[in-house]
Amino acid sequence: MHDPYNAFTLGGDVYIDGARQGPLAGLTFAAKDVFDVAGYVTGAGNPDWRRLAEPARQTAWAVSALLESGARLVGKTHTDELTRGIFGDNSHYGTPENPRAPGHVPGGSSSGSAVAVAGGLADMALGTDTAGSTRVPASFCGVFGLRPTLGVVPMDGVLGQSNTFDTVGLLAADPDVLARMGEVLLRKKVADQRPARAVVLEDTLEAADPEVAAVIEAALPRIAEAVAPVTRGVRISPVPLSDWIEPQNAIQGREAWETFGDWINRSNPRFGFEVADNFLRGSRVANRTLSAARGFRLRARRWVLDALEGHAVLVLPTTPVTAPPVQSPRSVMWDIRSRIISLTAIAGMAGCPQISLPLCNVNGRPVGLSLIGPRGGDSLLLAAARRIGKA
């Protein structure tokens, strides 16, 4: 396998031809190493998980759907350990190299999938998204990335961590390819539909680095031309966006511990520092804290749905920063992680679809502009991306 960017896993040389005919015939795809492929071990970014796992008996629904539509699987891609990261680094297998921002992290946990697409090693790729694991690498690597409506794409055969946040993620360098992939996985045609307006979330611009906010502002005329008239002056939240971080971390962390805690206690696996820290924090989330976080999520969902009323989409930076340099201090990365989650939690809390569009860059490094749509509005976002690609 030609892999100059370390996108694919060791033993990730999984080549499976798709059906001879279908809407994706002639296209290639990669799959994050949390998607089961019958006869192969799902490694999940951790050597102890790989060592103890049995080969999968069945292939994940999403992988099968792409194969049956004619696409060819060309490999399994790197992920942060058990998907518990957001920068794409892995202390066991190394960090995939960001083709669009050399020397900077690719974003995670669907790091290898985004890198495979950005580096031209696959036409499209499957990832997952819990707190931004598809949207963040899409932003950092300068590709299109969709987090679908929660539950709309089956997670059968996918190793998740937090069942009230986990979704399959879609990545592609070309918006038409992403739309065709979406039609297969959503089981729905992408019609050329438009929202009534595109609502700029002012508090998300304030949360971003000034240079990121500036390039998002500069891209708004393109949104107005290709998507919908732009409306200004809307704030998504009556509380600071920083207040969204703790509820997101509490629910996700506790659910991830409930998913993996027994295995961790039984197997005492080797983890990188940040992954171990995330699991420990999750194990210590008290029931009272969890209940309060879930109450916050109900309020946050209403704020988002109110902002989307009248057939709107929401406009925001995908990430508040461009990709940080590889080997940045952990204290710096922890602060950046929290700032990222303050933006990615918006769609996640509401269960809404979000698409990251590679429209902007700062000093040569990509940063995504995102659209959030109403639940079930995935096709609306894919149609918008398609029009932007043609503009």
Rank of each mutant, 00 (worst) to 15 (best):
A219C: 14
L220W: 08
F273K: 02
P269D: 00
A224Y: 00
E211C: 01
G182S: 02
G282R: 06
G182V: 01
L205Y: 13
F260A: 11
P238Y: 06
T231S: 15
A208M: 09
E258A: 12
E255W: 08
M181C: 12
S283Q: 04
A196R: 15
G182A: 05
L220T: 15
V215L: 08
A228I: 12
L241G: 03
G253T: 05
M181V: 13
A198Y: 09
Q252E: 11
Q248T: 15
P229N: 11
V184F: 09
P229I: 02
G261F: 04
V199G: 02
W263I: 05
R254D: 00
T204F: 15
F271T: 07
P269V: 10
W257V: 14
E246P: 00
R235K: 12
I251Y: 09
A191R: 03
A208Q: 11
N265V: 08
Q193S: 05
N278Y: 08
R266A: 11
E258I: 02
R266G: 01
N268C: 04
E258V: 03
A213T: 01
R194Y: 02
L205K: 06
F260Y: 15
W257E: 01
A179S: 12
V200T: 12
S267K: 12
A276Y: 02
W263Q: 11
I216M: 14
G261A: 08
A179R: 00
W257I: 14
I264K: 13
R266K: 14
E206A: 15
V184K: 11
P210V: 02
A228F: 06
A196W: 02
P195E: 03
E255V: 04
A218C: 03
E258T: 04
R197C: 04
D262N: 15
P240N: 10
I236L: 13
K188D: 07
R197N: 07
R187V: 04
A256V: 11
L241P: 03
A198Q: 13
R254C: 10
V230Y: 01
I245A: 08
D277W: 08
E217T: 07
D192V: 01
A219V: 09
P229Q: 10
L205F: 11
E183G: 08
P221W: 01
